[in-house]
Amino acid sequence: MSPVQKPKKSTSSSKKPMTKNQTMKRDLSFNVRSLDEEKRSFELSFSSEEPYQRWFGSEILSHEPGAIDLSRLNEIGVLLYNHNRDKVIGRIDKAWAKDNRAYATVTFDDDAEADVIYQKTKAGTLRAVSVGYTVDSWEEVAAGKSSSNGRHAGPCSVALKWQPYEISIVSVPADATVGVGREMEEEPIEMEKGDYSYYERQILLNRNFGGITK
């Protein structure tokens, strides 16, 4: 007599959050604060706890104490243009979290290429900032339930431990229908350490299609 098989839960990868070594990006509108023209520096906000729609559903980045690992930004952080690792336009002087948002002070370089982006940012032509990050720990919140801290209603996936690795000034957020500061992306791929082909494909697809949709 064959054993009774228990029904299997759906494990469709299209509904699962990303795993380690996968990379994500999200955009925000670029709010210039404390412009110091002499130093060519800005203070900006690069992340919040606003729900963000992914292929697996609603994603929320926790900004509670200890949730964000800002060590990489504070130790070797650079400011990029359109997530292109070959277009370094400045440095990240300081990154911190406060009142459920993450902020950074950035300084633009004074070479010709960086100056073009700096002038367009200062003039308000470029108004979006995007952060690239990875997530180490998730909390899955079912429909009708609340997150462990009681602040987020399901269904959603809360990133409990995550690390931003770069901040970019971006020219065109991919999904214009939901306002400046949003981006729709395809499901991320596994990325081996030192493999930058993901970034190259992302930049090429953004150029060809104005953004990636699922």
Score class of each variant (00 low, 15 high):
139 E>V: 12
96 W>Y: 13
202 Q>A: 10
29 S>E: 13
70 L>Q: 05
213 T>D: 04
155 P>H: 03
104 A>Q: 01
188 P>E: 02
196 Y>K: 06
1 M>R: 04
136 D>T: 06
6 K>E: 12
26 R>Y: 04
94 K>I: 02
75 E>G: 02
116 V>H: 05
184 M>L: 14
195 D>H: 02
21 N>R: 10
39 K>H: 11
97 A>N: 08
30 F>R: 03
41 S>W: 08
27 D>K: 00
173 P>V: 01
33 R>Y: 11
211 G>Y: 07
127 R>W: 03
85 R>P: 01
34 S>K: 11
82 N>R: 04
151 R>D: 09
9 K>M: 12
101 R>Y: 12
212 I>D: 02
81 Y>V: 03
46 F>D: 09
28 L>C: 05
171 S>T: 03
172 V>E: 08
194 G>F: 06
165 Y>R: 02
3 P>S: 13
166 E>T: 06
148 S>P: 03
128 A>G: 06
27 D>C: 13
74 N>E: 04
59 E>A: 09
38 E>K: 11
58 S>E: 15
124 G>H: 01
203 I>D: 11
40 R>V: 06
212 I>G: 00
148 S>Y: 01
64 E>F: 13
158 V>H: 04
80 L>C: 07
124 G>S: 07
59 E>K: 00
186 E>L: 11
15 K>F: 12
77 G>A: 03
180 V>S: 05
190 E>Y: 14
126 L>G: 06
187 E>H: 00
102 A>G: 04
91 R>P: 01
41 S>G: 07
42 F>T: 03
35 L>P: 10
176 A>V: 08
6 K>H: 06
93 D>I: 09
23 T>Y: 13
72 R>L: 15
39 K>S: 13
161 K>M: 11
118 Y>W: 12
127 R>D: 13
8 K>N: 14
68 I>Q: 11
78 V>I: 11
101 R>T: 11
207 R>V: 03
165 Y>Q: 07
61 L>Q: 07
12 S>G: 10
73 L>I: 00
188 P>R: 02
5 Q>D: 10
122 K>V: 14
14 S>M: 08
97 A>Q: 14
40 R>K: 14
88 V>D: 01
91 R>H: 09
81 Y>D: 03
22 Q>K: 12
208 N>T: 10
173 P>C: 01
118 Y>G: 06
57 G>H: 10
213 T>R: 08
76 I>G: 02
9 K>R: 14
54 R>F: 14
71 S>F: 10
12 S>E: 06
54 R>A: 15
107 T>G: 07
163 Q>D: 01
45 S>Q: 13
177 T>I: 05
58 S>G: 04
212 I>C: 05
182 R>K: 04
200 E>S: 08
170 V>I: 15
204 L>T: 10
214 K>F: 05
157 S>F: 15
22 Q>Y: 11
123 A>Q: 12
13 S>R: 01
134 T>N: 04
53 Q>T: 10
79 L>P: 07
44 L>A: 12
42 F>L: 15
83 H>C: 13
33 R>A: 05
28 L>F: 10
3 P>I: 12
